[in-house]
């Protein structure tokens, strides 16, 4: 599968990733330093005294040049040290690791839903253009885009969870302790989170598939005696693979940001809700740590997408 040229492309992409990673770390680092005011003052709490500020400055090294601070911060980072929460004095790394599984569960779950529903709708709509399926799919995509997210989530909680009691309304179950229960509990938030992704995937895939089905090689396939199903599912699908990958990557990155709202609405102890809490509490190291973690996640998703391009599309240069 991997020709020499393609492995070269992959190495190239990975090498290109290094500057992006450095940029991500810089931005996360500067969150604390570029902001208004003296970081030491920010960290000193509600009743700062001259001594406590000086102590903090010394403790965190704010008196040193900024690049030196950055380098030592990166050094700590590489050892897995993101500092301590100002609130709970718990290591930020532990806090993130504790909550990350809940976040990842709903993001991945939402991705699976968006991918399956979006692909089926998009492909079915393209295969039968102008049919009822097409109109329904296009309609769903338009409505899903227009729905206010918050309103939709509340509606789902009140109808599906509170009135009909189909799903638990809020909270989370730890995946490692009770996988089925965890998935069950995550269903509502995942559906809510997946809606805009469904719309995006449906629309993009429909357009891409229509274009593929109109290309001249489809005539060759028909002249060979292939069935419409073989043309659609074998040739059509592989040809829209690149588009599908792009939109899935985009949706995935979007979902990672979307967890902030979802986790808050559904009271899920994940990184998104923790980020909002920490922002309210001015718990700077937690904010910094979570933003860094989310950025790295988005970055990893994009890297995987880039690498898959080289595998999926033989024409990739």
């Amino acid at each position: 599968m991997l020709t020499r040229r393609r492995s070269r492309v992959i190495r190239h992409r990975v090498a290109q990733a290094v500057p992006t990673l450095i940029l991500v770390s810089l931005v996360s680092f500067l969150i604390l330093h570029i902001g208004p005011g003296d970081p030491a003052l920010l960290l000193a709490g509600e009743f700062p005294t001259e001594e406590s500020i000086a102590e903090i400055r010394q403790l965190y090294g704010f008196d040193r040049p900024i690049w030196e601070q950055y380098l030592s911060w990166v050094g700590q980072l590489l050892r897995g040290d993101l500092g301590l929460s100002l609130q709970s004095r718990e290591p930020v790394m532990d806090l993130i690791l504790n909550r990350l599984p809940n976040t990842l569960l709903i993001v991945c779950y939402a991705m699976v839903i968006a991918f399956v529903v979006g692909s089926v709708l998009g492909i079915a709509a393209a295969a039968r253009r102008g049919s009822l399926v097409d109109r329904v799919a296009t309609g769903v995509a338009t409505i899903a885009d227009a729905l206010p997210y918050f309103w939709l989530a509340m509606l789902m909680v009140s109808v599906l969870a509170l009135d009909w009691q189909l799903f638990p309304a809020t909270g989370a179950v730890r995946f490692l302790e009770d996988p089925l229960g965890a998935i069950w509990t995550a269903t509502l938030p995942a559906i809510a989170l997946s809606i805009s992704g469904i719309a995006q995937i449906t629309r993009q895939l429909r357009a891409a598939m229509i274009e593929v089905l109109a290309s001249p090689f489809v005539r060759t396939l028909r002249a060979k005696g292939l069935s419409p199903a073989a043309i659609l599912w074998r040739h059509g699908l592989k040809n829209v693979g690149v588009t599908l990958l792009t939109v899935v990557g985009l949706v995935f990155s979007g979902k990672i940001g979307g967890t902030l709202l979802t986790e808050t609405v559904f009271a899920i102890p994940g990184t998104g809700s923790a980020l909002i809490q920490a922002a309210i509490n001015k718990d700077y190291f937690v904010v910094q740590g979570i933003i860094l973690m989310l950025a790295v996640l988005v970055f990893l998703v994009n890297l995987v997408v880039d690498l898959l391009y080289a595998v999926l599309d033989p024409r990739v240069e």
Binding site: S215, P216, T220, N239, G241, P314, R315
Partner: peptide, 16 residues
């Protein structure tokens, strides 16, 4: 009965 077409550039599926 088979058919071949004029445009050799676009008559084959690019990803197979």
């Amino acid at each position: 009965i088979s058919m071949i077409f004029q445009e050799p550039m676009t008559a084959l599926d690019p990803v197979f």
